[in-house]
Amino acid sequence: MKIKDLEFNHIAFLAPMAGIADLAFRELCVQYGAAYTVSEMVSSKGLTMGDKKSAQLLTLGNDRPAGAQIFGDDPEIMAKAAVKCLDFNPDIIDINMGCPAPKIAMNGGGASLMKRPELAYEITKAVVQAVNIPVTVKIRKGWDEESVNAVEMAELAEKAGASAVAVHGRTRQQMYSGSVDFDIIAQVKKAVGIPVIANGDIKDEQSAAIMLEKTNADAIMIGRGALGNPWVFSKINAYLDECRVLPEPSITQKMAVMLKHIQKIIEYKGEYTAMREARHHAAYYTKSMRGGAKLRAEIGKLERFEQLQELSYKILKEYE
């Protein structure tokens, strides 16, 4: 699998997720075999105006190869933002044309560009011309079922010079509900000559294999399926490369990884911020464990790392 001259060891990528796929999580997923990661999305306007938070979101580390993702609806500003991204030495510039969040899509960015193919083309073209590294585009099936245009969008992205396109097989109106449309991703794959990355509902080896079989995509992108489950990449890699099924990690291993993950967030962001973010991550790491309601109540009150350690010890004792 290659995007322009950039070669990947495997084909399971980590999807960009705002508020989730920060540097700590990206590095953890790479340790478990994610072949590629993308930063949390950054506002092109904020970045060009020197916003400090935007710069923090673009900080890369041991999460290579990695892309910097930007969003916006002005070709000139997007091009300037892409140039600023180069200060962080990304391997790829990724343009978000698929985010369904109202605060993004209702303000001209993200999935709203699915309704404006011509503008999407101009944005991609401007960014491609502004930088000397590969540019990729992330899209959806369409805005709604009455305006399914992923094929048109992908063809325009290729025409504008994009080196790859990632397709989430749902419309913006679906958000993350309903079923993923394998057929639309397959149609995109047939229509363009650049690599196509399939996204949506990939959570394990079986769903990864089904996605590849039904779409013929060049790679797959895992988002929510990696939450509390970073080892999903090593499991998918073993299955696709060697037809081998790795065992599910033990409760002890899960708790150890959870603590390691939160420690890394603390290192990057400080305990106050990290422990509030830890509530979300811990809920995923402990999903389906005994005493769910009580666990969730305790997780919702986490303020110090010691509390998380105590909670993990309680869980381990429950499973002795």
Rank of each mutant, 00 (worst) to 15 (best):
G270F: 06
I222G: 11
F182R: 14
V180Q: 00
H261C: 09
V196A: 09
T215W: 10
E155S: 09
G161S: 05
Q253L: 00
N237A: 08
I202S: 07
V167T: 11
Y176D: 03
I184S: 05
S179W: 01
N229W: 07
T215P: 06
A191W: 13
P230G: 12
P230N: 12
F182M: 13
A154S: 11
R172F: 11
T273C: 11
M153S: 05
K203A: 13
K189Y: 12
G200M: 04
H168G: 06
M221T: 02
C243Y: 12
G228S: 06
N199I: 01
G161F: 01
E242W: 02
A162W: 03
Y268E: 08
I222E: 14
E213T: 12
E267V: 06
Q253R: 11
G161T: 08
H261Y: 08
C243P: 01
E155R: 15
K235N: 12
A160M: 04
I262M: 14
L240N: 00
K264T: 13
Q174S: 10
G228M: 06
Y176E: 01
T252G: 07
E213F: 04
V257M: 06
E152I: 15
M258K: 00
E205R: 11
G223I: 07
C243V: 00
G178W: 09
Y272D: 10
E271T: 14
V196Y: 10
V192M: 06
K235Q: 15
I194T: 09
I185A: 09
E267G: 01
S179Y: 03
M255P: 02
Y268T: 01
Q174D: 13
E267F: 13
Y272A: 11
A154R: 02
M175H: 14
T215L: 07
F182C: 08
V257R: 06
